[in-house]
Amino acid sequence: MSLTGPALVVLLLAAAVALPLVLVLVWRRRSGVLTGALRWLVILLCQVLAVAGAVAAANDSFGFYNSWDDLLGRTAKGGQAPTANQLVPADGSQGRIVSLPVALGSGQGGHGEHGSHAGERFRVLVWLPPQYDQPQFRSQRLPVTMMLPGQPGTPAGVFREFNFGGAATAAIAAGQVKPFVAVIPPIMIDPPRDTECTDVQGGPQAESWLDRDVRDAVVRHFRVSTSAHQWAVMGWSTGGFCAAKLVLRDADHFGAAVGLGGYYDSETDPTTGKLFGDSLWRREENSPLWLIRHATGTTRLLIVSSQQDRDSWAGVHYADSGAMVAATRGMPGVATIVLPEGGHNYHVYRATLPQVFSWLGANAGL
């Protein structure tokens, strides 16, 4: 049975409801020490099943783990290579998926501070639209959108939960965007550490992984544009933070960014470790909120958030999309989609993809 989807949630919750009924029957017909122990065992099992059902439902909504192997740590780095019909229809109507292994530190110029992880390969999903294989497009280099998952999260999970293949195919067919290639890399390259897509001094180079290693590998292997104007980056949750940071710190490689349910100030906590050492300067240089306040040129950024999203708009300590919207009000190139309701989940933000693609078509060379 799949780890994702409603079947597992329904099974767990149904078992949690059915077991108390069994307990009542046992309680009435039996007595003795053994029966008493059995009663307590069933009560405990009911609680475990109820909690497991709630956790499975949360995983189905947020895509923390994509498979049983992913949950148990048995997948290859960056996730298992998917077959095409797992993420897009096998008939090619929504394009095709290629799994591209990319080594840490393989980008132009190199960056040899990955330590024990240097040279490790992670799988990057590359979505090719139907037009990529059509004769009339074979002499064209297509624009690119990089899509970043949340933390934790997987490329396959974010692609599936956003119905990215279907939404992108529909946007191309509607003329909202030109045919484009999508690149979905993992952002967790030093698991389970949350690097916040940061080049950590003496540690993982998570920013360079995206803007050098992944970008260079895609340019080498696929017929895509090399112009920053035709490379956009979008991300979900932590991926939204990373997307904004990349467009502000690396305008030579990315021309536009979209944050979906993201946040915009650099944070550290027990899951990140000391990303910036004790340097306030390093922290500020990795904060999109600080960077955009000090930007000298035009930044093309779309901020998408819900006012009821406590993990993005306001609520938990790092939620600051509301502050980012206020700080950028009136700035050329910055646009917003502010939803009046909806929490921090795929269902809420998936519905905004048509508007997101329309904005990318007008602002990101797509």
Rank of each mutant, 00 (worst) to 15 (best):
Q176L: 11
Q176E: 12
V177M: 13
V177Q: 13
K178G: 08
K178R: 15
P179C: 04
P185F: 08
P186G: 10
P186H: 12
I187V: 13
I189K: 12
I189D: 06
D190S: 13
P191L: 03
P192T: 02
R193V: 00
D194P: 03
D194Q: 11
T195W: 10
G202D: 09
G203C: 08
P204I: 00
A206C: 10
A206F: 14
S208I: 01
W209C: 11
W209T: 04
L210N: 09
L210C: 09
D211K: 11
R212M: 02
D216I: 02
D216S: 09
A217S: 12
A217R: 05
V218L: 12
R220E: 12
R220L: 11
T226H: 14
S227R: 15
S227I: 04
A228S: 15
H229A: 15
Q230T: 10
Q230H: 10
Q230K: 11
A232C: 15
A232E: 07
A232W: 04
G235Q: 10
W236I: 00
G240A: 02
C242P: 08
K245V: 01
L246Q: 07
L246C: 07
L248W: 07
D250F: 08
H253Q: 13
H253W: 01
F254P: 13
G255S: 11
A256M: 02
A257P: 09
G259E: 00
G259I: 00
L260M: 07
G261I: 00
Y264K: 11
S266T: 01
S266W: 03
